[in-house]
């Protein structure tokens, strides 16, 4: 951690870490402790009085059917996003791995969505699927399917999943390609000499050896789907119709800023923080055990 050759104690190092520590304390530690504190209070809507209620906010939250529905929805949403974007990226990466010569050209064309903000991604997909004008909705209509994500909850969920997965394909693609290129060519060649075709080599050699990358990406995709998709939901569906797309991070915002239920929203924040901490720990344990070949 510390360099063998280093500088001795003085005021300088304190000045150097100062800015970061100050910002961390003011904008991270203090607000987070406030969230913890508020989660055990009940405040009236005008903020005039508050009462200490122990874990009542949490109990209320756990007894709320709506909260559990949102939890279930979030897990459903995250698994769909992770499955869709990872499998699409894996297929594309496996194909790109065959034609190394032009992989860079395809890569250039596939990384764009990473740069697009979630809310903008939402706007793009919303425009494609707009019930009255959208090109995809129009095409579906020609086939006799009446698309309207503003009324149909399942269709709203589908649309949000598409937009969220689309954005993540670039990221997954880059990591899968890097993972595949670090697999020794001798293994692939040996399998080919033994008579294994491309599909067999993929299922028996490439995919198993990719498992560290796959696991890492699974964690990253879940984190993304849990926290970074707020913009998509907010722009495209506002959690609706009838809460069909109200995932946890949207509910925190909605209950706190719109519903003004400060205690309840803070309790939800605390639970989300615990989820992040758990995911971070999982990710770090992965880093330690990273398989090298």
């Amino acid at each position: 951690m510390l360099k063998r050759v280093h500088f001795g104690p003085s005021v300088l190092p304190f000045l150097l870490v100062g800015p970061q520590i100050l910002i961390t304390l003011i904008f991270f530690i203090w607000p987070a402790s406030q969230a913890l504190y508020q989660s055990v209070l009940i405040e009236d809507a005008f903020g005039l009085s508050s009462e200490f209620v122990w874990f009542d906010n949490f109990i209320e939250l756990f007894e709320d059917v709506g909260y559990w529905e949102s939890v279930g929805r979030t897990f459903f949403f995250s698994s769909l996003v992770a499955a869709l974007s990872m499998s699409a990226a894996l297929i594309l990466a496996a194909m790109a791995d065959r034609i190394i010569k032009v992989v860079l050209a395809y890569q250039t064309l596939l990384i764009w969505p990473y740069a697009v903000a979630p809310v903008v991604a939402g706007a793009l997909w919303m425009f494609l699927f707009d019930p009255t004008l959208g090109i995809v909705a129009y095409t579906l209509d020609m086939f006799g399917y009446d698309w309207n994500h503003k009324l149909n909850g399942n269709e709203a969920m589908t649309l949000v999943v598409f937009a969220a997965s689309w954005k993540m394909v670039s990221y997954n693609f880059l990591f899968f390609v890097a993972g595949m290129q670090s697999i020794p060519k001798s293994l692939i060649e040996a399998a080919a000499i033994d008579g294994a075709g491309p599909l067999r080599r993929f299922t028996s050699i490439i995919f198993p050896l990719l498992s560290p990358t796959t696991f890492f990406l699974l964690v990253m995709n879940v984190v993304y789907a849990f926290f970074d998709t707020f913009g998509i939901v907010h722009a495209v569906t506002k959690g609706g119709p009838a809460r069909a797309t109200e995932i946890l991070v949207y509910k925190v915002y909605n209950d706190g800023f719109i519903g003004l239920d400060l205690g309840g929203s803070a309790a939800q924040s605390v639970i989300l923080m615990m989820i992040v901490i758990a995911l971070t720990v999982v990710q770090f344990r992965y880093v330690e055990k990273k398989v090298a070949y």
């Binding site: 991270f28 508020q38 991070v249 800023f257 929203s265 989300l272 923080m273 971070t280």
Partner: peptide
Amino acid sequence: MLPVEVRILP
């Protein structure tokens, strides 16, 4: 461990 989304209000 503390993305801005989970501590927005405070």
